[in-house]
Amino acid sequence: MNEEYEKRLQAFVGRELNPLTPGQDPVNQPMIRHWAEAMGDTNPVYVDEEAARATGRAGVVAPASMVQAWTMRGYAATVRPAPARRGFDELVELLDEGGYTSVVATDSELEFLRELVPGDHISQQEVVESISPEKRTGLGPGRFVTTLKTYRDQDGEVVATQRWRTLRFRPAEQAPAPQEEPAKEAKEPEEPKALRPRPAINRDNAFWFEAARQHRLVIQRCAACGALRHPPGPCCPECASLEWDTVEASGHGHVHSFVVNHHPRHPAFAYPLVVAVVELAEGTRLITNLVGTDPDDVEIGMPVVLDWLDADPDLSLPVFRPAALEEN
C-alpha cells in the first residue's frame, strides 16, 4: 500500500463520519415494550411504572442496550439513501479504492451515563478514532476502523458513548463476503481439502510414527532405568542412557489441558479443532486431538480413550475420545 494512500486514509482520523443526527422518534413506551418482548426481557422497570418506582426510579426507563436503536433509520435506510453525502460515504469509497470492500463488525463498547426515559430525544454523532495499518486476518488483509459514537439528549448532554470497531477487508476468497458477518465461522466439521502437515520424522522418532501406522500407541522406555518418556528422544532424561525399547500404551488417559482452535484455520483440519494434552495412564503426556465430543463438553481431568485417525494412506495418528461414551 503506497504512502499517498496511507496519508489520505489517516486524514480521516478525527473526522466526523456522521454529523449529530436526531433519531426519528423520541424514547417511547411502545418501542420499549416491543424490544423487551423480542429480547425476552421481563425486567418490570421497562414497562411497569409502579415496579420502576419501587426501585427508586421516577418511572419506567428504557433498556440501556437499546440506546443504539433510538437512532437507527430503520426500514427507511434500506429504501432511501441518506439525504446528504457524509464523511462516512467518503471513507467507504476510499476503502473500496484500496480494495477493502467487505466489512464485519468486531467490537462494541457501550458506556452509559444515565438511563433514558420516555420523552428523551436521542441524537448520535460518529467520529473516527483510528484506522489501523493493514493487518493479516482470517478473512483476508484488512484494516480495523475504530469510531466513537456519541449519544446526546435533547439538551445536548451526553447520555452514552459507543466505541465501534469494524474490520474493512479484502475478501480472501472470490466468494462475496457477508456484510457485517462476525468472522468466517467454523461450521460443522467439513471435509478436509488438504493433507495434514507431515510430521518431522527423524531417526529418533520414526519408530513412534511407524507404530502409529499399525495403530499401536507406543511409549519409549529407558532400557537402563525403566523410565518412560515422550516425545521420543535418543537419551534418557533420568539416567542419560542411550539404550531404550518401547511398551505399548493401554490407551487410557485423561485430559491434562486443552484448547479449542477456531482460527487461524488450516485446510487440512476440521473445526472447531480440540487440541489437547492427554496424560496417559502410564504417566507420559502427548499432544493430540479430541474427537467425538462437543468442544463445550471437554473438561480438564476428563477420562479419554484411544482412537485412531487415518488421515491419509501415509499418516495415522492417535486421537482420543471421551471414555464416558464408551461406557454408555
Binding site: W35, M39, G40, D41, T42, N43, P44, V45, A51, A52, A54, T55, G56, P63, A64, S65, M66, Q68, V104, A105, T106, D107, S108, E109, L110, E111, F112, E115, P182, A183, E185, A186, H262
Partner: peptide, 27 residues
C-alpha cells in the same frame, strides 16, 4: 447487546443500573 443486558439484569434484579456493555463478536 440486548440479550447480554437481559442476562445480567435478570441476575442482578430490577434495581440494577447498567453502566457499560463491552463486547467482542465471534461466531
Amino acid at each position: 447487546n440486548g440479550l447480554i443486558d437481559r442476562y445480567i439484569t435478570g441476575w442482578a434484579g430490577p434495581a440494577a443500573v447498567v453502566k457499560a456493555v463491552r463486547i467482542r463478536l465471534g461466531a
